[in-house]
Amino acid sequence: MTNDFAQITLDFETEWTEFFREGAPDLWPQDLREEMEPVMHRIYTEVNNGVYRCGFAGEQEAYDKAYDRLFTALDWLEERLAGQRYLMGDTITEADVRLFTTLARFDPVYHGHFKCNRSKLTEMPVLWAYARDLFQTPGFGDTTDFTQIKEHYYVVHTDVNPTQIVPKGPDLAGWATPHGREKLGGRPFGDGTPPGPPPEAERVPTKDNPLVGPDGMVQVEA
């Protein structure tokens, strides 16, 4: 048993394969693991955890250092993703899943609530296109509940936001706009197949993700 989130997902991908659906993609491919490990480590320490170091810094110097480390890593990701569709090349892997969770929260939460405000995600062209590409891929945007995300952070973190006021923005419409990253090629699910829409009982309500249609799928602009 473990409560280490980083190990839990890898355990799912290696120890629980008998419970996979038919056609489930391999997110932790054996031939990429050596290269993936340092990439995922940097994403965790500098991005996933980096926003928290900014948000919960107790003094200016600590915040300044955390801020610089975060945006150094985001600039590195902009450069890495400029010429390839996904973090490890042509297919989605665990590394992309881990990065997406922070990118989806960046403008609704981290930019303002955690003072990660050098740039919005929408102002980082490569990462913004990459995030939209993933969002519009089955299994990503169709399970993203923006209302829950905002209410959790702005209500729970009373030391950061003592008023518990939840902002109305940002406008989410851009998530469904064309991203153009298909020109980089690739096969999102590799030799696997995409998941179907979430079960009806697990669908994100339209009020919590206005880009999800009644069928549970993200509605993409033509």
Rank of each mutant, 00 (worst) to 15 (best):
V126C: 01
T143C: 09
G141Y: 11
L172R: 00
K168H: 00
T137S: 09
I165N: 07
V160R: 15
T122G: 02
H152P: 13
E151S: 13
S119M: 10
T137M: 12
F146D: 04
P178F: 04
P167T: 03
H152Y: 15
G174L: 09
A176Q: 05
P167V: 09
D145H: 14
D145G: 11
P167L: 08
P167G: 03
P138L: 11
E123K: 06
S119G: 00
N161W: 13
V166Y: 06
Q136Y: 11
T177L: 10
T143N: 14
Q164N: 10
K120W: 09
R181H: 04
T177F: 08
E123M: 02
T122Q: 10
R118S: 06
K168L: 03
V156Y: 15
Q148W: 15
T158M: 14
V156Q: 15
T122A: 13
L134A: 06
V126T: 14
G139N: 06
K150L: 13
R181I: 04
I149V: 15
D133P: 04
V156D: 13
V155H: 11
F140E: 08
P167M: 10
L134C: 02
E182T: 04
Q148V: 13
A173P: 02
R118A: 08
M124G: 00
K168Q: 10
P162Y: 13
D133L: 04
I149E: 12
T177M: 07
L127E: 03
P138V: 12
T143R: 15
E151G: 09
D159E: 15
P170S: 04
R132W: 09
T137G: 02
G174Y: 05
T163C: 08
D171P: 00
Y153K: 12
G141P: 02
R118E: 07
Y153H: 15
H157K: 12
V126N: 10
A131V: 04
T122W: 06
L172V: 02
T158D: 14
